[in-house]
């Protein structure tokens, strides 16, 4: 395994005056898919927001691709090559599908150091989006918005995809599609950091998992041994 692409050590984060994360440490290596697992309110989304610099945070070490991102503004972090797919999708509902994608396609040298995505390649992956390029984001179904949100992140040519609960509020059939799509992206060499409550989704995509509860790290290890811990250990990390 190569050196970690993302190293997080001792991450604390706050929402207003309330502290959400306590001394969280994890890492993502190049080409790896890592899951953050935990119940509602455990701090998964906050962890990803803290990574993007969207909430107040402090860390002993916060390094992405060899760059210290602790003091960088959000847009600089994104430009290093992190494609953020937020919880509840956050599509620009007043903009068309094509315009949503255009926003993320930064002109000039500001690309995300990852593989570039042509529109053709993108629409091969998301054939639905090709058909609705002129549709307003607000007029799409939840599953379609989720696809658009993922596609929008890819347009910025990321090295690491950060996905916040992509299966939430989406029909089971779409979840299946999503698993296939994310799996294909991983196979193409993208690194993936995935926050999920849905164990099945994590299991079919991820190599390793970190279990978070009440803002603290509870367990970490290979995905397979989480399965074992779940089945055999009476003090299961997921309970």
């Amino acid at each position: 395994m190569s050196a970690p692409m993302l190293e997080v050590e001792g991450l604390d984060a706050w929402y207003g005056a309330a502290r959400i994360l306590f001394d969280l440490s994890f890492e993502v290596r190049r080409g790896e898919a890592v899951a953050l697992i935990g119940p509602n309110g455990a701090g998964k989304s906050t962890t990803l927001k803290a990574l993007m610099g969207l909430v107040r945070r402090r860390a002993r070490r916060l390094v992405f691709d060899g760059v210290d991102i602790a003091d960088l503004p959000t847009y600089r972090i994104a430009r290093l090559g992190i494609g953020y797919v937020p919880e509840d999708r956050r599509i620009f509902t007043d903009l068309t599908v094509a315009e949503n994608l255009d926003i993320a396609a930064r002109p000039g040298a500001a690309g995300g150091h990852g593989p570039a995505w042509s529109r053709e390649a993108l629409f091969d992956l998301f054939p639905n989006l090709a058909r609705m390029q002129d549709r307003r984001g607000g007029a799409m179904s939840g599953g379609e918005q989720q696809m658009l949100s993922l596609a929008r992140a890819l347009v910025s040519a990321p090295q690491l995809l950060v996905l916040d609960e992509p299966s939430e509020g989406v029909a089971p059939i779409i979840v299946e599609q999503m698993i296939d799509t994310i799996g294909a992206l991983k196979a193409s060499g993208l690194s993936i950091l995935l926050s999920e409550q849905n164990y099945a989704v994590c299991n079919s995509i991820c190599d390793r998992a970190y279990v978070i509860g009440q803002g603290e790290l509870r367990w970490s290890g290979p995905m397979a041994s989480l399965d074992e811990a779940r089945n055999h250990d009476s003090a299961s990390p997921l309970d």
Partner: peptide
């Protein structure tokens, strides 16, 4: 916020 998260200098 989302605009910034897409790498735009807010």
């Amino acid at each position: 916020e989302m605009v910034a998260a897409l790498g735009i200098n807010e």
